[in-house]
């Protein structure tokens, strides 16, 4: 540790000032705008926002999709992570590589693929018609299902990776010990694996949940204006109606949710360090 305060400030201030001016100040002003009405502070904008049934629908849909993606990714994540940690070290490395790989690909590209798959002439429709389950193309695009699938594909790797590290930190003998004591696989999961990997689950869940909540590209491409989520609604309010007040309200909701999730994450991380 060096003692010179002036030196320390000279090194740290440029970055802090930059972030404060370019990022913090504008965002704070934007958020403040939602609490202003006729030169005084008020919650009118929030009341108005939630009075509109469309807004309520979008808000609830965003929340619902976030929860569903998180829940389903947790279920699939456990199965996949469990399979991966039981592989030989070499195979494990390769599998982790395959899970990480999609994270490196632009989300525009990853989402775009679903148009090819779910479109009117996409693989799914071709398959359905081929085996005679359907006579004419079923509309998958611009449905909640499409958005759900897109989000799941986008964020599942984060859940798997969190769970892999949680499973690897689990005491090696816990599962055999429970098996020897007569637990079936369901009991082993419920009484041993879940409690011991809870923190990994929460970390992965937070990442997936905030990711889904604040996703733009997936609802924009796969949901369009039919399946709006909070970010696409924000974009529409600004570009179509120059409605910056609604934008501020949505921004505040998104930031509060992200912060709450992050706070939870930090709390858990410190709790783990203490132990």
């Amino acid at each position: 540790m060096f003692q010179n305060r002036a030196e320390a400030l000279a090194l740290a201030l440029p970055a802090a000032v930059f972030a404060a001016i370019v990022f913090l100040a504008p965002v704070v002003i934007l958020l403040a705008e939602g609490f202003r009405s006729a030169d005084s502070w008020s919650l009118v904008a929030y009341v108005d926002f939630f009075t509109d049934p469309l807004n309520r629908t979008v808000f609830l849909r965003t929340f619902r999709l976030g929860l569903m993606v998180t829940a389903v990714s947790a279920v699939i994540g456990y199965a996949a992570a469990f399979a991966i940690v039981n592989l030989s070290p070499r195979n494990k490395g390769q599998m982790i590589g395959l899970v990480v790989l999609p994270l490196m690909i632009s989300s525009v590209a990853r989402t775009y693929a679903w148009i090819v798959i779910l479109g009117r002439t996409g693989i799914v429709n071709q398959a359905l018609q081929l085996i005679g389950l359907s006579d004419e193309p079923i509309r998958f695009l611009f449905t909640e299902t499409a958005v759900f699938i897109g989000l799941l594909q986008l964020f599942l790797p984060l859940m798997i990776l969190s769970l892999i590290s949680a499973l690897e930190n689990m005491p090696k003998d816990a599962i055999p010990a429970a098996r020897v004591l007569g637990a079936n696989w369901f009991q082993v999961f419920w009484k041993v694996i879940l409690p011991l990997t809870k923190e990994g689950l929460v970390i992965g869940g937070t990442l997936v949940f905030t990711g889904s909540l604040t996703a733009y590209i997936t609802p924009a491409i796969l949901g369009g204006s039919k399946v709006l989520m909070l970010e696409t609604l924000l974009y529409q309010r600004v570009t179509v109606a120059s409605d910056f007040v609604s934008a501020s309200v949505i921004a505040f909701i998104l930031i509060v949710m992200s912060f709450a999730a992050n706070l939870l994450l930090k709390r858990l991380a410190t709790a783990r360090n203490k132990r």
Binding site: M1, Q3, R5, A16, E231, A251, S258
Partner: peptide, 27 residues
């Protein structure tokens, strides 16, 4: 260094990761 307000500085420079990009762009 033992930086005065070190945690504040760290938080300010880390915030852009938490706040959704669309909001940063709009602001």
């Amino acid at each position: 260094y033992k930086l005065p307000f070190g945690e504040t500085v760290r938080t300010i420079v880390s915030l852009p990761i938490i706040v959704p990009g669309i909001i940063v762009g709009l602001a």
